[in-house]
Every structure is written in C-alpha cells, then in structure tokens.
C-alpha cells in the first residue's frame, strides 16, 4: 500500500510543469529526461554541458527538499531481474518511441503534439496491462 497524496502530487506535478516551461523559455528545450540524457551517451553531443547540468540539478534536489524538512517514501518492490529487464525495455522503447513520461506526458501534451497523445495513451495502456498481468495473473 502507498498513501494517496492528491495535493502533494498536484503541487509536485505543477513544479514539474513549471520546470518544463522554464527550460523552454530559457534554454529553448523540451524537458524530457531521456531526450536530455541521450546526448550524454557517447557519442557525446556538442551541447553536453547543459545536458549534464539538468540531471545534476535533479539529483541534488531531493537533498535540498530533505534539508528543509521534506520527506518522501521510497520502495522498489521488484527483483533485480525485473529492474534489468524493465530498464532495458524502457531504454529500447524510449529510443523508438521518441520520449518518456516527462517528454511526451508533460512537454508533448503540453504543446498539444498528436504524437505525444498517441505515445502517452500507448505506454499508459501497456503499463496497466503489464502490472495487471504480473500482479494478478502471474501473481508475483
């Protein structure tokens, strides 16, 4: 069980949306985590410095949040094999699908891209089916 956190999630989501708008306004870029990271996987993109700075800021942020008294839960209830297989599929899928929940879900739908609507509907549906199969049919 995890607690339903409507207000915190709404507020956190708004911050993510605000970050997406600011990155477009200042750096002229889509705030999709995989799009940004792709340029850091060799061959290194010419504009790698800002691409490295964005995830670096994101890694520091939880510590800032904890330092001001914030807290969050963390539990990864999956096996090492699931992390490796799942991560590998995410990597392949994100490359062919052209984005992840931050890129397609917030930025893409945020600018009303039909491709992003299709991608989000597809990966959401696939994730619902996958979790249903794993938890209720296989019973893991």
């Amino acid at each position: 069980m995890t607690d339903f956190t409507p207000w915190q999630s709404l507020f956190g989501g708004a911050l993510i949306g605000f970050a997406a708008v600011l990155l477009m306004a200042f750096n002229g870029r889509i705030a999709g985590m995989t799009g940004i990271l792709s340029g850091l996987i060799p061959p290194l993109a010419a504009d790698w410095p800002w691409r490295a700075a964005f995830p670096a800021g994101a890694i520091v942020a939880p510590f800032v949040y904890m330092a001001v008294g914030g807290s969050f839960s963390f539990d990864a209830p999956v096996s090492p094999a699931a992390l490796i297989v799942g991560g590998f599929l995410v990597g392949i899928g994100v490359h062919f699908g052209g984005g992840c929940p931050s890129g397609h879900g917030i930025c893409g739908i945020g600018r009303l891209s039909p491709r992003s609507f299709a991608a989000v509907a597809t990966f959401m549906a696939a994730a619902f089916v996958t979790v249903f199969v794993i938890r209720h049919l296989i019973g893991a």
């Binding site: 999956v78 699931a82 297989v85 799942g86 991560g87 590998f88 599929l89 995410v90 990597g91 392949i92 899928g93 994100v94 062919f96 699908g97 992840c100 929940p101 597809t122 990966f123 959401m124 549906a125 696939a126 994730a127 619902f128 089916v129 996958t130 979790v131 794993i134």
Partner: peptide, 8 residues
C-alpha cells in the same frame, strides 16, 4: 515497449 518496461 516503454510501457511494458515501466510496468515491470
């Protein structure tokens, strides 16, 4: 594929 990996 992404959605399957996300769910796994």
């Amino acid at each position: 594929l992404f959605g399957i990996g996300w769910g796994v």
